[in-house]
Structures are given as structure tokens and as C-alpha cells.
Amino acid sequence: MTTGRVLVVDDDPSLAEMLSIILEGEGLEVTVCAAGDLALRAFRESKPDVVLLDVMLPGIDGVEVCRQIRAESTVPIVMLTARTDTVDVVLGLESGADDYVTKPFKPQELVARVRARLRRGDDNAEAETLQLGDLTIDVPGHVVTREGSTILLTPLEFDLLVALARKPWQVFSRETLLEQVWGYRHAGDTRLVNVHVQRLRSKVENDPENPQIVLTVRGVGYKAGKA
């Protein structure tokens, strides 16, 4: 069982406490923060491995908090949202969240998401270097470089890129990517994939309007560009 630190940002004390009970029951270390404007300080102090972030927060709303945290860290962020409307979800994802769970969620579901975000880092440690276009990917080192300069990716974006780069001949459906990268066993929300591919492109493509690294295969999904 991985131990890890989780920062819960939620203004509802009952829910925050319940979340703490559940996550601590899973052997995780939990810090709670009740307001958006305190979240960034709490984040800096607790240095969590995963952030659970409610979208509706007093002070600064969750989307903004997400943006602030993302500005200084690549820590995995899971949004807690009561809204399943496309706009809200996409807005949250675009602000930098890796994943989201819709209230009401089952405890196991939440734990699974958090575990999936924590899982990375403890898989293989063998040296593996992938080449994709003009990018060099150092898999165990979690570093992507173009002509010597490092491109900063979140763990999830990195995983997405690696998944595509390992099998450049294969077209990945959104469902497959969800399973491989996010760790969903059942079909989840394919919007996650769309948004993250957009974000990944904005970082790794020379011209995001005309992608060369991550290609869209219409009606099927995505594949890696030519090595």
C-alpha cells in the first residue's frame, strides 16, 4: 500500500471530514483546507502527492485554485464537481486538472482515482528512451526534451505521451487511452482524453494548430506522429 499525502480542498466540513476518514482508512496522509484563497498556502506547506479540489469554493473558486497550483507544480489534481455539464467539466480540465469525480461518488471510486494518480513512479525503473518526432522522452526520468531543452509536462500528460510513443504504429481509441493512462476499468468520460490531448499538444507541438506529434484519427482516436 502506497503511502501518500493528499490535500483535500473542500468547504463542506462534513464532506471534508468524511473524505479524511475514508482516505486515512486507506493509509493516506490527509490535509484539509476549507477555502480557495487558503489552498495555495496549504499546498505549499503540505507538499501533497495528490490534490482533491472542490470546484465550488468560497474565496477563489476551484478552477482558479487549480490554475494557481498548476502554475508552480505538476502535482496530480482531481476535481470534485457537482456539475456534470460539459462546460464546467471542460473548464476544470482545461485549467489543469488531471481527472474529476462527480458528486455523489462512491468511496471506492474516489479511492481508485486517487490511487491511480499515486500509482505512477513506482512502476519500472529500467532505462528507456523513446524518440517521437524531434522529442526525446526519458521514461524513468520523466523528462521530455526537444533539442536539449526540457518541456515541462504533468505526470498525466507525460503518461499520455509515453503511451502513444511506445506504440507509434497503433491508433488508440479514447477508451483505450482512458484505461491505460487514467486507469479506468470501465468506460469513463472521453472528454478527459480530448482536453488532455489539447493540453499536451499546446506543450509539445511546434504548431498546435497543425499537430505533428499527436495525430487525430477521425472517428477512431489518436496516434503518435512519425518518429
Binding site: 468524511m18 455523489p104 462512491k106
Partner: peptide, 8 residues
């Protein structure tokens, strides 16, 4: 939100 807490 309360339902989530109750659920858990």
C-alpha cells in the same frame, strides 16, 4: 454534497 457525505 450532503448526499456524497451520507453515501460515504
Amino acid at each position: 454534497t450532503p448526499l456524497t457525505t451520507i453515501r460515504m
